[in-house]
C-alpha cells in the first residue's frame, strides 16, 4: 500500500502498480545521467518531480515511454516490461500520454485533426467516433470553439490545453507532464494548471515534472526531489515543504520559494 495520504484533492489510490522503475541507470556517452532510480507509482497516484536544471527529471519520465533508452535497470508499465521490441514499446506508448514543455502540436493539422490522428491511425477508431471523442475532450479543456483552427493561430495556453486533450483522446492510463507550464506567460499558466487539476479530480495516474509548488500541494500524493541524476528525497507535499530532510532540498526550496 502506498504510504502517501490524501492531498487536498482526494481520489482513491489502489494497490495496483502502474509504473515500477527498478535501479535504473542511464548514460549519455560517458556521462552518467540517471543513477539508480527506484520509483513505484500506483494506480490513481499523482507524483510531482522537481529539482534543479539538469538533474535528470525529463530523462526519467522520458524513459517511462521509451523516448529515451536506458542501459541498466528495468521499467514495468501496467504489467508490461519495457524491452527493445518495437511492438511492445508502441503498445505501452498507447497507454501512456505525454505533454511536453513546448506543446509539440502538429502545425499542419487542425486542432481537431491533432486530436483524432492517433485514435484513427493507432486505435483504428472510425473517424466519426474519433471526432466525437475529440470534441468531448476539447470541451473539457474548454476550447471546443477552436476545433477547426490551426495550432499556429492559438495562444500558448490554448495550445497546451489542446496538447492535453490530444493525449487524453487516446484514453491513456497514465499521463506524463514535462514542465507543461514553463514555456507559458503567467496569465496562461493558470488555465493549464486548472485543466490538470480537473484531470487529477478524475483520478488519473499522473507524473508531473513541474516547479509549480501550489499545484504540487493541491494535487500531489508525493513530491520527489531529484539532483545530479538521483532521487534525493520523496515525501508527502506537506512534509516535503515544511520539513525537508536534506540540505540540498532545503537549498532548492529556498531558491524557488523566495522570488
Amino acid at each position: 500500500m502506498p504510504e502517501s495520504q490524501s492531498p487536498a484533492i482526494s481520489t482513491p489510490v489502489s494497490d495496483q502498480i502502474m509504473i515500477d522503475i527498478q535501479s535504473l541507470h542511464k548514460w549519455y556517452g560517458a556521462f552518467h545521467v540517471l543513477k539508480d532510480i527506484n520509483l513505484t507509482v500506483h494506480k490513481g497516484e499523482r507524483i510531482v518531480i522537481c529539482g534543479p536544471s539538469g538533474s535528470g527529471k525529463s530523462t526519467t519520465i522520458r524513459c517511462i515511454n521509451r523516448l529515451e533508452e536506458y542501459q541498466r535497470g528495468r521499467i514495468v508499465v501496467d504489467g508490461e516490461e519495457l524491452s527493445n521490441d518495437v511492438q511492445r514499446i508502441e503498445h505501452i506508448r498507447r497507454e501512456v500520454g505525454m505533454v511536453f514543455q513546448h506543446f509539440n502540436l502538429f502545425p499542419h493539422l487542425t486542432v481537431l485533426e491533432n486530436c483524432t490522428l492517433a485514435p484513427i491511425w493507432v486505435r483504428k477508431l472510425p473517424r466519426q467516433e474519433a471526432e466525437e471523442i475529440a470534441m468531448r475532450y476539447l470541451t473539457r479543456v474548454k476550447i471546443p470553439e477552436q476545433a477547426s483552427k490551426y495550432p499556429g493561430q492559438l495562444s500558448g495556453g490554448q495550445q497546451q490545453r489542446v496538447a492535453i486533450a490530444r493525449s487524453l483522446c487516446m484514453n491513456p492510463k497514465i499521463m506524463l507532464f514535462d514542465e507543461p507550464t514553463s514555456a507559458l506567460d503567467p496569465e496562461m499558466i493558470k488555465e493549464v494548471l486548472d485543466t490538470m487539476v480537473a484531470l487529477a479530480e478524475d483520478g488519473m495516474t499522473m507524473l508531473c515534472v513541474t516547479h509549480e509548488m501550489g499545484f504540487a500541494k493541491t494535487v500531489a500524493h508525493r513530491v520527489i526531489f531529484m539532483d545530479g541524476g538521483e532521487i534525493i528525497e520523496q515525501n508527502r507535499p506537506h512534509e516535503f515543504f515544511t520539513h525537508p530532510q536534506s540540505e540540498r532540498t532545503k537549498l532548492f526550496l529556498s531558491q524557488i520559494l523566495h522570488h
Binding site: L67, H91, R93, G97, A118, W121, V122
Partner: peptide
C-alpha cells in the same frame, strides 16, 4: 519534438 510527440502517441 514533432517525432517525439508522434512516438508518444504510439505512432
Amino acid at each position: 519534438g514533432q517525432l517525439e510527440a508522434a512516438a508518444a502517441l504510439g505512432l
